[in-house]
């Protein structure tokens, strides 16, 4: 359960103040499938970053599963990110030196899970995302769709309650993009909260709840 109350985030660009988020209040229940849409600079990515604890709001309160997470220390926020949130990015953000399997394994390492236990979980993820024969390839040897599948496998390996996707199909062609969305939706069906930021109307329309943003404010919220 995500509850934002009067969240404001202001950026300072030189002597200019940009209100990326202006007094946002929003509730997203667990298991929801939400799209956040809006033009560039409308604040949708900033909203996703705040929800994902990558960014701290300047004011307002953010409760995640009943706890005020804005007051947590950086280390505690990192733990919450690790355990409750999965990120999927437009540009995949895979570590180029590591193989597909090692990229997927990273969150397990950070969590301090011993190697013997990690192997079975990584194998299961490789199977689930149809990456078994690509396990030992580096990102440069993978196609765009495969890279995003690795990224999704990495984002979900610790079974987060919320999956945050920022333009997940932005770097993929239409067909592959559709496949990736189907994968994300599959995870939603299994119970994960799915929040997708996009400016692709067709993609946004697939969600069950549509939040529209403009100039840092929520201008529409339809189910």
């Amino acid at each position: 359960m995500i509850r934002l109350s009067a969240i404001t985030r202001v950026f300072h660009m030189g002597d200019q103040e940009v209100r990326a988020l202006s007094n946002i209040s929003l509730e997203i229940g667990s298991g929801e499938y939400v799209s956040i849409m809006g033009p560039s600079g409308s604040g949708k990515s900033t909203l996703l970053n705040v929800v994902g604890l990558l960014d701290r709001p300047d004011s307002g309160r953010y409760e995640l599963d009943g706890t005020d997470v804005t007051v947590l220390s950086e280390t505690e926020q990192a733990r919450v990110r690790r355990e409750k949130i999965g990120f999927v990015f437009q540009s995949f953000h895979l570590v180029p030196r590591l193989t597909a399997a090692e990229n997927i394994e990273l969150p397990l390492m950070l969590e301090g899970i011993p190697p013997a236990h990690r192997k079975s979980q990584v194998d299961a993820a490789l199977d689930a995302f149809d990456l078994r024969d690509r396990a030992h390839h580096r990102p440069s040897e993978l196609s765009g769709g495969q890279r995003q599948r690795v990224a999704i496998a990495r984002a979900t390996i610790l079974k987060p309650t919320a999956l945050l996707a920022d333009e997940p199909t932005g770097n993929l062609d239409h067909r592959i993009g559709g496949e990736v969305m189907a994968l994300l939706e599959g995870l939603h069906h299994a119970g994960t909260t799915l929040i997708v930021v996009t400016h692709d109307r067709e993609l946004g329309a697939r969600a069950h709840r549509h939040i529209a943003m403009r100039d840092g404010e929520i201008v529409g919220d339809q189910r």
């Binding site: 994902g52 990558l54 950086e74 280390t75 990192a78 733990r79 919450v80 990110r81 690790r82 355990e83 949130i85 990120f87 953000h93 570590v95 990273l106 969150p107 950070l110 969590e111 990495r154 984002a155």
Partner: peptide, 16 residues
């Protein structure tokens, strides 16, 4: 830099 950002996003604390 972007790799460090990613590590933070997937939950690596500063100490790690």
């Amino acid at each position: 830099t972007s790799e460090i950002g990613l590590l933070k996003a997937i939950g690596a604390p500063a100490a790690d």
